[in-house]
């Protein structure tokens, strides 16, 4: 393992992701066939109470539909929650990003916009600091065995090399990278550990896509993930965040707990 062993009090994070479309939390398999899961504020509060360390709200139809309603939601979330939250979906230019920060977001996440306009990464990092920016990287393991990048909610193939894009994103100032293994999303077959193992990125890595069992979280953290993001496993109430954390603590992973 090339992972640096350094002394730090920081603990791995469990992040609950809420995919929002038309003001409702939705869940789909492989980004398609959306299913209504509930109210974003109610669900956010519920996850906060369960011990989620962070939340991510993604307006997944925004880059397709150009919705602006997300701003109202962001403002309400900022006033209601007492843990950090990230917003994304449909951010194209710095002015879009300004609006989300003004509405109270702690961080923003870019995906399609980062690929189409990489300079936006530099602009956000310069204006708000690297800590305010997560770049999400949608990657799919093709039948050929090749890792291919995608944008637009997983619908458009991108002709960029995965490894060099990861490095470029860090160079330009992203504070964290969220690796979305599309071939694992919604399949419940675990995270793609190969994408996490033996990597030595200089920013925290968030593993996303494929959590089905508590052991999947353990494997991702042991493989080097600084945070693990999941959606369906929580939305379907198969496990609470607390149950996942209890399992990880039993397996010698230090987690934030909410005891007084």
């Amino acid at each position: 393992m090339s992972k640096l062993i350094q002394k730090t009090s920081l603990v791995p994070r469990i992040i609950a992701c809420l995919d929002v479309a038309n003001g409702r939390v939705v869940k789909g398999t492989n980004f398609k066939q959306l299913k209504d899961m509930g109210d974003p504020i109610e669900m956010g509060l519920q996850y906060q109470h369960q011990g989620a360390d962070e939340l991510v709200f993604l307006d997944i139809k925004a880059s397709v539909d150009k919705q602006d309603s997300a701003l109202l939601l962001v403002n309400k979330v900022a006033k209601t929650l007492s843990i950090p939250f990230t917003v994304g979906g449909g951010l194209k230019i710095l002015e879009d990003v300004d609006k989300f920060f003004n509405a109270g977001a702690d961080k923003v996440t870019l995906n399609t916009a980062a690929v189409l306009n990489p300079n936006l990464i530099d602009q956000i990092a310069n204006k708000y600091g690297s800590q305010s920016l997560i770049v999400a990287v949608d990657v799919n393991l093709e039948a050929s065995g090749e890792l291919v990048l995608y944008t637009h909610g997983g619908s458009k193939r991108v002709e960029k090399n995965y490894a060099s894009w990861m490095n470029e994103v860090i160079q330009r100032g992203a504070g964290e990278i969220m690796i979305n293994a599309m071939h694992k999303d919604g399949t419940g077959s675990g995270f793609d550990l190969d994408l996490l193992s033996n990597q030595d990125y200089s920013v925290p890595i968030i593993a996303s896509g494929g959590a089905n069992q508590p052991v999947d979280f353990l494997d991702a953290i042991n493989a080097g993930a600084d945070a693990v993001l999941a959606a369906g496993i929580f939305h379907r109430k198969e496990y609470t965040v607390e149950q996942i954390k209890d399992y990880l603590i039993k397996n010698k992973i230090k987690m934030r707990t909410q005891s007084c």
């Binding site: 350094q6 009090s9 920081l10 603990v11 994070r13 360390d53 200089s202 920013v203 934030r256």
Partner: peptide
């Protein structure tokens, strides 16, 4: 003095 800065995340008070 740490390779990854800023420090972003949860830590336990001592």
């Amino acid at each position: 003095d740490f390779p990854k800065t800023p420090m972003v995340g949860w830590a336990q008070l001592n």
